[in-house]
Design a protein around this nucleic acid. Sequence first.
DNA 1: GTCTACTGCCCGCTATGCGTACAATCTGAT
DNA 2: ATCAGATTGTACGCATAGCGGGCAGTAGAC
Lengths: 265, 265
Amino acid sequence: MAIADDSTGESPQVDRDHVQSLERGIAVLLAFDEEHPEPTLAELAQITGFSRPAVRRFLITLERMGYVRGSGGRWSLTPRVLAIGQHYTASHALIELAQPHLLRLAEETHESASLATLDGDDVVYVARVPVRRIMSINVSVGTRVPAHATSMGRVLLAWAPVPVVDSVLNRRPLRPITPRTVTDPSALRAELARVRADGWSIVDEELELGLLSASAPVRDRTGQVVAALASSTSAGRSSRGELERNVVPLLVETAERITADLGRR
Amino acid sequence: MAIADDSTGESPQVDRDHVQSLERGIAVLLAFDEEHPEPTLAELAQITGFSRPAVRRFLITLERMGYVRGSGGRWSLTPRVLAIGQHYTASHALIELAQPHLLRLAEETHESASLATLDGDDVVYVARVPVRRIMSINVSVGTRVPAHATSMGRVLLAWAPVPVVDSVLNRRPLRPITPRTVTDPSALRAELARVRADGWSIVDEELELGLLSASAPVRDRTGQVVAALASSTSAGRSSRGELERNVVPLLVETAERITADLGRR
DNA sequence: GTCTACTGCCCGCTATGCGTACAATCTGAT
DNA sequence: ATCAGATTGTACGCATAGCGGGCAGTAGAC
């Protein structure tokens, strides 16, 4: 057994397998956000906690790579940054393959269609055809929402390996997002069992009041659930019953079609 | 004036402002693509040209940060990678702000609506509402296309600073993408002048046969053109004349509305 | 079984990246 | 104008972070 992993606290012995500069450089890149869209060097140093010369080196490196641009003492991200995410998309055939199915689903239901994957406790949208703005937040590819309060999360958890489910459910109290969010672990486990039995999930105003969504599993060729397909609408425009009657069959059929496409390559 | 920039080749004097490990680490991340969706350590070393121990260090660092996952000797990207691009989106208010306008434009025209920015010689899609699949490639946020052959590129170049235009147009022969692509620099400059006069651009099958698109400028509060709004259709479904009559007015109006929204914050 | 090709890891060396310290520059107040 | 008081840019000596050659351990191929 290795002595490594977490230090017991005293040995100043450093971690030979960790590249500090990579982590720091990415931290600098991520320091750009809504609150700091055009930070100065000093601001970035303050946000990240690194020395100014260090931040400057990272910025110059990133600038040479085309990810940031500096002018007039202020720095900003370039659209090149978006290309990084493309590598995720490109390396997962599922996503490109699902696109036409999402388009068709959106067209037939007149509602937004989404495809998402599990990452930690969150569901991450990996493909999307928006139709109307229904959620208060602007959902785009890459957006994360808590798994336990969404139909896509329920679908992904329903067929996820036990340790994954445990790590999400046994986490410090599940956060209630709206008054209707189910936060009791055993109630959620029962719900997951029901999803498994039905083959789909509907979640009604648990992520956001007025938001209603249905979801079905997409599988890879080994039968493992790798993504969830969803259709979302507003509680005003539809209802749980209507969704179940009109949308769920189409949703399940579309998910199965994506699964089939994924299998035959 | 600094002695730095490009070395004349012989001085082994290193660049103190360049962080090697950051550049290498990102190179490892970018080595994942369509052809190498689940590479092994050795493959990555071969692709990047770094030693295996080095690649391993980067992978472990990236794994700890949640960007890659290793299992069974194969490594893959996690959806966390998509979060990096979100920082670009979040730091540019324009994008979120334009979203509802894109949705409305798409709904009213029944065609895909896009917003794009210039980066080097390329146009980069920064927001998009797809309606139907028209292009052979799958366009998503982050996708790059050559500026000279697209309506969005023409709009962005029409109002771009002279050195930017020169750097795009005087580049080694403009690549013809289809037989109809305009590649003569002076013809293009004339076209840019026309775009400037009209206030919009239509490009007809220059990027891809059968593809037809119209575009109008979006400005920031200083009047500078910061993005192009476009509506794309297929040559079968519409025509240049029809586009000019029915779509362009709506397009220009929508672009002006985005400009106005952008101005008042 | 042997062979091959991979990953995991150790470890000494030095180039790399570090931050302190100082110069240059800009901004606004007096 | 002149001068604080804030910036950012740069130099440089030092510690160490990161480097890769090399080897042990492991898994699959035949």
